[in-house]
Design a protein around this nucleic acid. Structure first.
Lengths: 213, 213, 213, 213
DNA sequence: GATGAATGAGCCTTCATTCAT
DNA sequence: CATGAATGAAGGCTCATTCAT
């Protein structure tokens, strides 16, 4: 169907309900692409599937996006960027303390994986299907996000707050744990977001061996 | 490039070493498929690519495997089964102690992800491209593997050796951390397998909050 | 871009000079179409290309011309007609003498191929892409032009001025020679129009074997 | 080559009559392409049209030719090369005399345009649709053919046998006249090949102003 | 055991065109 | 006068698969 599954896009919001209200083309397509790419993967998805789910013709899709690859690139970049900005926002509020900063990162990450499960899956799996130029651009953003984690853990160790011997492996573990959430979390289940954040914060603190905080 | 990149498969074993493994049709194809599926994904790989890398004709491929889907299914099942058997082997040697059993699981998992990086990537990513019947069969095996972890952690808690409040999240974290190794580990790097096992064992024990062992 | 490359079209004539010919929609489109049809051929040209080079939107194009085919038909007819009228004009001034009349035809033809190279190419190549009705209409005009040549040569032979045994082949040769000019003539080269006319008049007179004139 | 439009190829002769005898793929396609490209032009021809006329499936076409462009390039190259070789063959037999050599060139050219009308049309019209690399390769061959004419006329003038003042224009006229034959000649008409050669030889000699031979 | 030829379905993309505004 | 959004048909090409040899 054409209804946005995830975050509402400012551009649409319009008449809604039913077929895509003439003019909501771009968003309808983006949403449809997001869903189907997540379900079947980039190569497993045909551009006809996307157009159909968006309730538009094949050609309308090309009116808004120049190619299947651009559609993917836009989706991945938008998603990664949103994640990065969410982290920065939480960090800005977290102050200077490594433990608080690590908590902020876990909160941002878990929240993102839960709220944007669909993007999260795509980002994890379809990254390799980007053409080199798009991939490079995305890499820089991803590296910046990695650095956020790295710096916090390094700082915690320096200040004697974290005690893990291998910070890189600790970082990888925490990130992998948060990322995995997108694969299994059921929003209809018993665990709500805040509870989940609490649980993964605990785990993260154990992984970096935080003591006395 | 028909030469096996990874572990030699028992099925082949032939004259090997050098040119296109004389008469080793089946294995050549399996190996080629494994590599290319890992590189480009199931839908991104064409059966012609596989035949070409195996140094065989398209028709030869069909002589050995009945379809592209079967090729994938065989690969995934074989890989998952090998992993499961490796776990059982290590567990048999580990005795009854939860800590020793968890160590055994981490050892099996890390070793598998390192030695069979290619299969590991495929298992992680291409699972969804299996047709339902194959998927179901594989699911049972995967669930059995999950149960190995679950039972060990549950036992550890019951015996007061592990203290984590949310065993499922602990299990997911440890498994995700081990799985991720396949994505980043560089066998030419400085960290050898035993060192890596040691590090991830430590992390796993912190995640389940093992005390006094 | 959108500036007319060749002769100014009476239809436009507007403010012109510089940017997109203000309000000169129709002419801008005709000119753009002429250029691109000549460069890439009818089927090799998209209506979007034309609109883009004219600096107009796709819909504007349809405001002025009812279809791609009509655009071609208009171009071809206009061009052929201009050629025919140029011939008649020169002939009217040439009087009755077959030699003078042949000279007039060569002059008209060479001048047209030089001054309107672009149209000339289109007329030569895109004729076959006209739909039957347009083609028929154009044929009549082309036949009339052919008859101008035929009659002059026949008259010259009758009067004993020309001596070629096969007037049709002579006519075809002269016409082919003039037509070819559009393909190779370089207006920036050393040979100017008058010189070229002189040369081809000589050739034509040799081809029809004119003696004592 | 199986479909009989033009010269018979020794390679075929097989089962004939009816659909293309399994195995005659390559030639059937080449022949079909030649015909349709000549009728509708490169861009006006769809690869499906070609396959259909060849009595094969679309995919079979791609089994034999890697792309539509390659099909065109092969056709153009083959045709131009055949023409060039025919010229060289006739010239070898013509000896040293400029008049005899010019006669040989006219003979080769007229014969080619008559016997291979279809190729001739394609060569004349579709040259511009070749991609640059193919175009360049073909250009060299075409230039070599041009040089054959140029050298003969220059030699004739030097020896005082030809007297035209502008050899390049003479050459262009003769070549254009011969080329044009492909457009109008009707093999079912009254003029046979030898007669046509005689007529165009006469014209050519008049154009270069050959005297006393 | 292995091959080359052939196929039908489907892929991404572009086309000429229309229509509400 | 002019536009942006939308469309159905068609374009070139690739796919997994089959079959006679």
């Amino acid at each position: 169907m054409s209804a946005p599954t995830q975050q509402p896009t400012p551009t649409d919001g319009g008449p809604a309900a039913g077929g895509p209200p003439r003019g909501a083309g771009r968003a309808a397509i983006t949403n449809a692409a997001r869903e189907i790419f997540a379900e079947r993967g980039y190569h497993g998805t045909s551009i006809r599937d996307i157009a159909a789910r968006a309730g538009l013709s094949l050609s309308a899709l090309y009116h808004w996006h120049s190619s299947k690859q651009d559609l993917l690139a836009a989706l991945l970049w938008e998603g990664t960027n949103d994640y990065f900005e969410a982290c920065e926002r939480e960090l800005a509020a977290a102050g200077d303390d490594p433990t608080q900063r690590l908590r902020a990162m876990v909160r941002s990450s878990v929240a993102y994986r839960v709220r944007r499960r669909v993007e999260s899956k795509i980002i994890a799996q379809e990254w390799r299907n980007l053409e080199p130029e798009h991939q490079e651009r995305l890499n820089e953003l991803a590296d910046a996000a990695t650095r956020l984690w790295t710096d916090i853990i390094a700082d915690g160790i320096r200040r004697g707050v974290f005690h893990c011997a291998h910070p890189e492996d600790a970082r990888r573990t925490v990130v992998a744990a948060c990322n995995a959430i997108a694969q299994w979390y059921d929003p209809a289940g018993e665990v709500d977001l805040e509870e989940l954040i609490a649980r993964y914060t605990d785990i993260a603190l154990r992984v970096v061996d935080a003591r006395g905080s």
